[in-house]
């Protein structure tokens, strides 16, 4: 039997004593465009961070290719949310893309010609070849996200994890990013994308997982995005809001 590409086994994550994600059991066994969908604060990003060891898990484990992450790290690419870095940092677009090659280079080795050619090629794939020498702060939001995408491409990984790559990005960049993700999938890579927009989710992803602090459902998009599942994922919030509204109306002030 072949190993699954990614396996979440009973993963539970807590910030302080409050669990934000519990008992997530999820196996992805073939390359596809995989969407992790859910409302804000549902623990979608936490799921990726737990997989990458960036937040401690209370219980459970995540395996890639049947191995712990530490043994297959160079085969896993990661794109954090754009807001996590200081865009005034004094580096150029090419410098950032080259960071994708650093893990493979290892300690103290500098990127050479091969890496520079790879970086240029990755920039070309995301449509930013003309911006190679620019300081990263002098780009639009969509362009910045594409720089991150190019850095991930330069990792030459087999599994990619994207954290909200479409947030705050203009339509043209969204289309470009999606096209690159689809290319990766077609080249046999597994692409996991945290995404919050239900409208686009249905048309973009082959398979999805609905997450709301636990795994609500996972599987082929058409089977998962059913009214009942969506109700189970999102409706709780709506009720909560209604209750809050009633409480406010009854007391005549904010609770």
């Amino acid at each position: 039997m072949t190993q699954p590409l990614v396996e979440f086994h009973d993963v539970t994550v807590a910030y302080g004593r409050r669990p934000v994600l519990w008992n997530v059991d999820l196996t992805i066994d073939r390359a596809c465009l995989f969407g992790v969908i859910g409302p804000n604060g549902a623990g979608k990003s936490t799921m990726l961070k737990a997989a990458l060891g960036l937040v401690p898990v209370v219980g459970g484990y995540v395996r890639f290719f049947g191995e712990p992450l530490a043994r297959v790290r160079t085969r896993v690419g990661y794109v954090p949310q754009r807001e996590t870095v200081d865009w005034d940092f004094p580096v150029t677009v090419t410098d950032v893309v080259l960071m994708g090659t650093y893990a493979r280079l290892g300690w103290f080795r500098r990127p050479g010609r091969r890496e520079r050619e790879l970086a240029a090629e990755c920039l070309d794939r995301v449509g930013l070849a003309d911006f190679a020498g620019r300081q990263i702060g002098r780009l639009s939001g969509g362009q910045q996200q594409r720089v991150f995408l190019a850095r991930a491409l330069a990792q030459e990984a087999d599994i990619y994890l994207f954290d909200e790559p479409m947030a705050g990005v203009d339509v043209r960049s969204q289309e470009r990013i999606f096209a690159v993700l689809a290319e990766l999938r077609d080249a046999g890579r597994l692409v996991i994308v945290v995404h919050h927009d239900l409208r686009t989710a249905a048309e973009w992803f082959d398979r999805v997982a609905l997450v709301d602090m636990r795994l609500v459902a996972a599987g082929p998009t058409a089977e998962v995005l059913t009214p009942i599942n969506l109700q189970r994922t999102y409706a709780g919030r709506v009720e909560l809001l209604e209750e809050l509204g009633q409480a406010v109306a009854e007391r005549g002030r904010t609770p």
Binding site: Y78, T84, M99, L105
Partner: peptide, 17 residues
């Protein structure tokens, strides 16, 4: 190289090992 990747994006640095 190591100092720059750490300072620019510590989360990415950690994720890539």
């Amino acid at each position: 190289k190591e100092a720059v990747v750490l300072s620019f994006d510590a989360e990415f640095a950690a994720a890539t090992g």
